[in-house]
Design a protein around this nucleic acid. Sequence first.
DNA 1: CTTTCAGACCTTTTT
DNA 2: GGTCTGAAAG
Length: 666
Amino acid sequence: MTKQYVLRNTGPTTLRPSKLDYRKELNEAQYQAASTVEGPLLIIAGAGTGKTRTLVYRVAHLIDIGVDPRSILLLTFTRRAAEEMLRRASVLIDNRCSQVAGGTFHSFANLVLREFGRRINLSPSFTIMDRPDSEDAIQVLRTEMGLNNKDKRFPRKQTVAEIFSMALNKQTTVPNLIEQDYPHLYESLDDLLRLYERYVEYKTTKTLVDYDDLLTKLKDLLATHEEARRRLSQRYQFIMVDEYQDTNHLQARIVRLLAAEHDNVAVVGDDAQSIYSFRGANFRNIMDFPEAFPGTQIIKLEENYRSTQPILNLTNEIIQRAHEGYDKRLHTEKREGETPILVQAESEQMQSRFVCQKILELREEGVPLWDIAVLFRSSFHSFDLELELARHNIPFIKRGGFQFMETTHIKDLLAHLRILANPQDAISWNRVLLLLEGVGAQASQKITRWILQGNQAVERLRSFEAKGKIAHGLKTLAQVLQVAAEAQRPAEQAEYLMQYYLPILKRNHPDDHPKRFKDLEHFVGITERYRSLERLLSDMALEPPNDSVAGVLAVDPDEGPLVLSTIHSAKGLEWHSVFIIWALEGRFPSFYNINSEEELEEERRLLYVAATRAKENLFITYPIRIFDRGLRMVLSRPSQFIEGISEDLLEQMTLVDEESNWGWES
DNA sequence: CTTTCAGACCTTTTT
DNA sequence: GGTCTGAAAG
């Protein structure tokens, strides 16, 4: 058989004029952004200015002029965003769009490292640790090092994990970070540094990779292996990055290296919508882009197609009060519209009742539930509202905050699967062993060490000498893992392991195991979609299904549910009507983020992002005089971001309780 | 010595 | 609902 050499249609020489008739569909700036395909391009796109639309046309245009879809890389903030854009591009052109490489930086790093990891001594079968996994590892090492039974208090594992991660993402060192942001932990600095060293070593020996490693290792690969860099850069001839204001220096560096061969990079972002600095994101990345890429063309999209003028008047005012000067005033042709409304409620309960009642009214007026969203700063802010919605049988889904993948029982089941995929995964062994009766922290670590000393993990587990209950538990576990390993599909393995896990579930959660069981079944359902266990596990770590199961029981199957979301998870989305609840000083801005000007500015941008999600109606609500148990203080002032805004821009409203008129009744 | 259980405390935002 | 602590139980 003759060997074949595939000639690929990439590079500018094959470009031909586009047949796509998109000139009519885009305004001048959008058209420029979509059709400028070569060289570095910075698109500054205000909220609702058709940024996604522009990117969609850009992808379609590239393919239309003959670019091989496989040589296009579309980096977005979530995988769903990439999928959505490619779906829309497919409608414009054809299915070739599905061959475009797209996803988050982390998922892209995952793919590249599975392919090229060997070059930096990383086994391609590495397991991705999510944040709780990192915390578990830190916990194990801390106990091992005897750091928790000293007289001085050691920071909690979450804090430790956050410090380690932050140091990398903010491009600083642990000592510097402690000095700046955690001065109260200064006395633990030496221990933290030793722990950090152990943590790095631990991950390496166990073939574990955390979120930060994905980016760091990809950067290292590109920076130090010229051959890999050249191959990747030649493979991805046209690179696009969405939400560039929320990338950090590592990601910027990765983009720079990936584009080394051609400089064909288009980044899109809005400095006024940067809301991820807690993750090391820096909106100055946007400003610095032209320096990293000399000859950058800059295009600004300023016409808003989403919101009515009254909504824009308010959002312009909110961002105008920022100290960092964003020279941005969005305008729109959609002049008519309702003035946004500020609602003061007596109590949290009244706030929830108002939102429910108004939602039902909107629905009567013909606004579908799925086109309404309730947004909030922190995920627990919606707890009371969730109860109220349930009372009115209003179906909803909740996004952001604590996820279903992070619940104990799902993580337990997942740990069993992870052992099958990576028998070196000490974190999962530890978790799985702790579930056995009679096994605590000491025993589980001892057994884990024993297992990892050999190659045949399950055999090692069998040969561990134990007595009574423990011995029995280990035998059963070994047997179950062996049988599960022989199953073909991930779903069969998950189902089998779930059966084994059920008695443990009942024992550990006597009160609510039926509810948790439903979650497990739901999870097993998700695994049906996968043929490869490795792929399943990567996806669960990088792009977990992020809708909670709670509100899925829609009353009317034709009508999608109402959306409850943290503002962070609402990024890039839009709704007919938007409620922003808890606009209360201490909650929004969050009490934890009022210590510096930068933090406060980010909170303000967060409100800006939330308010610019609305197309027609915007309600901002707050309950007055609330005792916050967590903060142990009374919150009684509306958010500083909306205080003193003129009534022309934000109409004020107070709630009157119908029942209070019946005072004579009781 | 290790596990288990009861009670106190705290809860930002996410790949 | 989670984590951490201390004390009882194994």
